[in-house]
Write a protein that binds this DNA or RNA. Sequence first.
DNA 1: AAGGTGACCGGCC
DNA 2: TGGCCGGCCACCT
Length: 117
Amino acid sequence: MAEPTSEISFFERVYEIARQIPEGKVTSYGAIAKCLGSAQSARMVGWAMNASHKYDDIPAHRVVNRKGLLTGKHHFDGTNLMQQLLENEGVKIVDNQIIDFEKHFWEPRENAQWSDL
DNA sequence: AAGGTGACCGGCC
DNA sequence: TGGCCGGCCACCT
């Protein structure tokens, strides 16, 4: 679908953030929502991710809820695909939950191109 | 045009 | 972190 004639959709805003998530790092919906200016609208982020399946540049598997739980794994092809992807990047997961979630947590920034650290 | 939906979050018990 | 409830906002039918 062609983009709007004026501004970018809220979705794409989320996608831009998700794309900037470095490997081995994860973030929460609320963090992205807050970065967009709508901390209480984390649902919109999740909703945006729902459509992310149409994009192949969106590492949705790096986005989890605040508990570090892979709530969205159900939306992936396989049952443990999301977990496999994260483990592949060095993130340990047990029972759909990320180990040391805070350690792997990455705060989204619109200009995080300089890498976080 | 109105209503329902949703991969959430924060607060309280 | 476990469960429940209210809020919040864009997208879809």
